[in-house]
Structures are given as structure tokens and as C-alpha cells.
Deep mutational scan, measured.
Amino acid sequence: NQASVVANQLIPINTALTLVMMRSEVVTPVGIPAEDIPRLVSMQVNRAVPLGTTLMPDMVRGYA
């Protein structure tokens, strides 16, 4: 089972991601792999991401 990136807090739209906003968790469906967390830092979300939501590739500008 692969860990995915999950929002550690509410992340408002257009917010640049920081390490404290994300955690890794084994979830279904699988989202962005946890090993990509360092790559996600400073990328912006293109929608509001509620606490506990799995980050999907289409939620992060420039990721996919």
C-alpha cells in the first residue's frame, strides 16, 4: 500500500504548499504519492482543499 499526500489543514485556493500543510497517509483512492511531498513545496493549489482531503494531481498547479 502506497502512502498518498493528505491535507493537514484547510488549504485555501491559490495557496503555496508548505511541509506543515501536508502529511502522508495510506488512503483510497490513491492520490499524489507521499514521496513527491518535497516537490510539492511552493506549488499552488487551484482549489480549496479541506482538512483530510487526498491531494490529486489536478489539484496542484504545475504538478501533472
Rank of each mutant, 00 (worst) to 15 (best):
V5S: 03
T54Y: 02
S24I: 13
V6D: 01
R61S: 11
V30E: 15
P38L: 10
M21H: 14
M22T: 02
R23V: 07
S42Y: 08
A16K: 06
A16E: 09
V27P: 01
D36P: 00
I32H: 00
N1A: 15
P29N: 08
E35Y: 09
Q9N: 09
P33R: 06
T53I: 12
S42R: 06
R47E: 14
L10Y: 13
R23E: 05
V41G: 02
P33L: 13
A34M: 12
I32Y: 02
R23N: 07
D58C: 15
L51K: 12
G62S: 06
R61N: 11
P33T: 13
V5P: 02
L17I: 10
N46A: 13
A34S: 15
D36M: 07
A3L: 14
A7C: 05
L51P: 14
V27W: 02
V6E: 01
L51C: 03
N46P: 03
M43I: 05
P57C: 13
V45A: 11
M59F: 15
V49D: 01
A48W: 06
P50K: 12
A48T: 11
Y63M: 06
P33H: 11
P38N: 11
I37G: 06
V49L: 14
A48K: 06
V41M: 07
L19G: 11
S42I: 03
I32R: 00
L17Y: 00
G52I: 02
Q44A: 10
D36N: 07
V27C: 04
P50Y: 09
V20S: 13
V27I: 12
L10M: 11
T54F: 02
V20R: 09
T53S: 15
L51S: 14
Q2N: 12
G62I: 04
V49P: 02
D36F: 07
M22G: 01
G31V: 01
P12H: 07
R47P: 02
V45L: 08
S4M: 02
Q2W: 07
N14G: 10
T15H: 08
D58Y: 05
V20W: 13
I37E: 03
E35D: 12
N14A: 06
M43R: 11
S42E: 06
R39M: 09
L19T: 12
M22L: 12
Q44M: 10
V41E: 09
I32A: 02
M43E: 04
G31D: 00
P33N: 12
Q9A: 13
V26K: 03
N14M: 09
A48Q: 08
M21R: 03
V60T: 02
L19Q: 06
L10F: 12
V5G: 02
V6S: 03
I11C: 03
V45M: 07
G52D: 07
R39T: 08
R23Y: 05
I37Q: 04
V26L: 13
Q44K: 08
L40C: 04
S24T: 13
V45H: 00
D36L: 08
L55Y: 00
L17P: 02
V26N: 07
R39P: 03
Q2M: 14
V49I: 13
N46Q: 09
E25K: 04
P38M: 11
I13Q: 14
V41H: 09
A7H: 02
L55F: 12
P33F: 08
A64C: 07
A48P: 08
P12S: 12
T28R: 03
I37N: 00
A64F: 03
N46I: 15
L40W: 02
V60L: 10
P12Y: 06
M21N: 12
T53P: 01
A16F: 14
I37M: 14
A16R: 06
A64L: 10
Q2E: 15
A48D: 14
A48L: 10
E35N: 09
G52Q: 04
L55S: 01
M22P: 00
A34F: 08
T15P: 01
G62D: 14
A34V: 15
Q9G: 04
T15W: 06
Q9M: 06
N8Y: 04
S24D: 12
S4K: 01
V45F: 00
M56Y: 07
A64N: 11
V49G: 01
S4E: 00
I32M: 03
L55G: 01
S42N: 15
P50M: 14
R61H: 12
D58E: 08
S4D: 00
V5A: 12
I11S: 01
Q9S: 10
R61G: 15
L19C: 06
P38S: 11
E25G: 07
Y63H: 05
T54S: 06
T53V: 14
L51W: 09
